[in-house]
């Protein structure tokens, strides 16, 4: 075909607005404020404060992914089982929150967890039954941020799981049952292994945004609670140290590429289907 030239605007655009910015980040990360080559930016990152934030981000993202998986898998499994009549409507109900602006989804939790909010009132009422004297503050805590993450990303776990589970050949499960496997065995040795591509793609879709977020931590965790994303935002918008900020951006990219690589190694390359 003689249409190769059509790609010119695309190539130019990507070079200008994808490749060039990343090259600039690379340049800034390996130079100091006067433009000299240095590794100082990466050495500064080794400070226990920053490493602590990095590990907290990874830990929270992992925990959030685990909770999403534990909550989302049964939901997707039940939905994919043919026992519901209005499956289409139900799965649509899982998709709708994904379409909501994610700031609004996070803001919604602000109203629930705030002192006087529905959940805060309920929790404190229950605690008072058990003899608690002081009011517990729910907002601006580790738990609030974790809650916000799980709430935001749960649909991203349910959807790929549902897709894989509902496409699974029901005859395989029947065959296993005919051959004498009990329900637990069928699940552990047939359904679960076959649904692993969905698990991997769900885990990727939850972990990636969770480890890079700075909005959820800022809105639900308050100014004191920092995640990796907050550090980068702060360097660029408040401290103005682009060199250090660029180095941290590179660390974040490396972290994501490594975890993607791990996922691909463990996961089925065909079935992931996120990208």
């Amino acid at each position: 075909m003689k249409t190769k030239g059509f790609a010119a605007p695309y190539v130019v655009w990507m070079l200008l607005f994808t490749i060039a910015p990343i090259l600039l980040v690379l340049c800034y990360a390996f130079t100091d404020s006067s433009g000299q080559f240095t590794l100082q930016n990466f050495q500064s990152f080794l400070d226990p404060i920053y490493i602590g934030v990095l590990f907290r981000s990874i830990g929270m993202a992992l925990l959030c992914t685990l909770i999403c998986l534990l909550v989302g898998y049964p939901a997707a499994y039940f939905l994919a089982n043919r026992s519901f009549d209005k499956k289409g409507v139900l799965i649509l109900l899982f998709i709708i929150p994904m379409w909501m602006n994610f700031l609004l989804r996070t803001y919604a939790w602000l109203t629930l967890l705030e002192s006087g909010g529905l959940i805060a009132t309920l929790v404190n009422w229950v605690l008072r039954l058990f003899g608690a004297k002081e009011e517990v503050r729910l907002l601006y805590s580790y738990q609030a941020v974790l809650m916000g993450m799980v709430y935001n990303y749960l649909p991203f776990m349910v959807l790929p799981l549902y897709t894989v589970l509902s496409k699974m050949d029901a005859r395989i499960v029947e065959a296993a049952e005919d051959l004498g496997a009990n329900r637990l065995q069928v699940f552990l040795r047939v359904t679960l292994p076959l649904s692993l591509p969905g698990v991997f793609s769900g885990v990727t879709m939850v972990f990636m945004p969770a480890v890079t977020t700075f909005v959820i931590s800022r809105l639900l965790g308050g100014a004191q609670f920092k995640l990796f994303g907050d550090l980068i935002e702060q360097q660029f918008l408040f401290t103005g140290d682009w060199n250090f900020g660029s180095a941290m951006s590179l660390v974040m990219m490396a972290l994501l590429l490594i975890s993607m690589g791990l996922m691909n190694r463990f996961g089925d390359k065909e079935g992931g289907g996120v990208f």
């Binding site: 695309y10 607005f17 490749i19 990636m208 945004p209 890079t212 700075f214 990219m253």
Partner: peptide
Amino acid sequence: LFLSMANLSMLTPDIVIGVSLMIL
């Protein structure tokens, strides 16, 4: 080669796309 540019863009976390474009 050219496809990998699109892949790179999709793999880059939003916050890094944001700050790198801001620098640019």
